[in-house]
Nucleic acid binder design. Structure first.
Lengths: 244, 244
DNA sequence: ATAATAGTGTCTTTAAGACACTATTTT
DNA sequence: AAAATAGTGTCTTAAAGACACTATTAT
């Protein structure tokens, strides 16, 4: 009887079969930081379900479309920004009852980090796109939902289970933060160590020791190097760094 | 025009829509060790495509079936063993042209580690199930295919891109090996440090320092503790340990 | 002058790398 | 006695944690 199930299953798995298949979606968690604050990009939905609610940019996969292409398409179409940086798959969400009336949906959750000014550009020229402040009400959890608020400070909720998906992305980032150069995407070009440390502290939700952070980034991990210049806008003339 | 694509997309995403969807499959990479050797569980396919070839146990998702349930079903149906231990999602494979004539298939690759004797039981009572020796021809790669051979030593190949999937699973395990208790699944019950170190070395494909390994497992990571007994079958009467 | 903070040096602690020595038991 | 190897102790090195001191500049 084990074999009968085997046969039935494989027999139905032919080209053009009409057996039930899940819809496969991608959602993009685009995080950005400003000082010590963490923000996520959302858009206002213009189609059912959950019309009018805020949600992460996401689309269903088109035929033979690689997931990463779909994520970039979602960012273009729903977030009004073109992103060609790295994308990190952080979670595959399935559990039925994900608050989605469109039936069986599997979501591939992707993470991208962008500098504040690049995201601001997109939100300024498109009305349905905005940033929400992120508060992480846990530490070291494997993935709990986060709390979101407008730039004005009012608490808001997203459609579907998207607050949970953001939690998954942040949990992944906190686990991997010292093994990935991804946070450097938040401070492109030249930057001071303080700016970079603020970005890391925003992602981690905790303070880092200044001297340890410098040693780790420059010596231990070797992710950045001084350019030789100093930031003339700052009274203390701190060293400027760049990636690699 | 961005919005038109948005609308068309969401409009088609209704229950019962007949737009193209991928088939979603799960494949199980079951690894086991014997001494310093690494083995993977495969079965001989009894249905198209690739009838008669060896392949990883895998099935397509049934309606609303969680991926982990599907993996356990694949192991039951194709591997003739019931596994209730942890399953680790290690990779989401998509790229078209995955040597699968059934069209657009996305595979969720899962990893499980089992003690040698438990796998042997399954292979002995089912004719289509067997173990293959694994040789990893790379180090620190993000995922290259592995080389496989029968217990007799002849080189063999698997259907689809399954040698690559095994490489993905091993690459994940090597990255995460000191941050997961998963390798302890290879030596359930009571075991000597040498047995456990052999298991770790099989997975890593490199030698570990005996004293460092003991310190790390017992003190630093605290994954195992001595039972107080010694193995009376071994001349040196080594200490016995158990997990946690 | 004072406050603020960047750069830098150093001491301590933790854990890994490397090695040596002893103990036990089979051959 | 010799071989093999488990248990254990110690020295060194790498990197993090913690702290202190100096330098610079706005106020």
């Amino acid at each position: 009887m084990a074999n009968s199930q085997d046969e039935r299953h494989d027999a139905s798995a032919t080209v053009g079969g009409d057996w039930p298949k899940p819809s496969v979606a991608v959602d993009a968690v685009v995080l950005t930081t400003q000082g010590r604050d963490l923000y996520v990009l959302v858009h206002r939905r213009q189609a059912e379900p959950h019309v009018g609610q805020l949600a992460l940019p996401g689309v269903f996969l088109l035929h033979d479309e690689p997931p990463e292409d779909a994520v970039r398409r979602a960012l273009k179409v729903k977030g009004h920004l073109s992103y060609d940086g790295p994308l990190q798959l952080v979670s595959v969400e399935n559990h039925p009852g994900r608050d989605d009336p469109r039936g069986w949906v599997i979501t591939l959750v992707h993470l991208a980090l962008m500098p504040w000014w690049e995201v601001i550009e997109a939100t300024e020229e498109a009305s349905g796109v905005r940033l929400l402040g992120v508060t992480v009400p846990w530490r070291d959890a494997l993935g709990e939902p986060v709390a979101l608020h407008t730039l004005g400070g009012e608490s808001v909720h997203l459609a579907f289970d998207h607050e949970y998906l953001i939690g998954q992305a942040i949990a992944w980032l906190r686990r991997e933060i010292w093994r990935t150069p991804l946070p450097l995407r938040l401070v492109r070009g030249q930057f001071t160590l303080r700016q970079l440390q603020d970005a890391y502290e925003s992602l981690l939700g905790e303070d880092l020791f200044r001297t340890t952070f410098r040693r780790r980034m420059v010596d231990t991990l070797g992710l950045i190097q001084p350019t030789g210049d100093v930031a003339s806008t700052d009274p203390r003339r701190p060293d400027l760094f760049r990636a690699v």
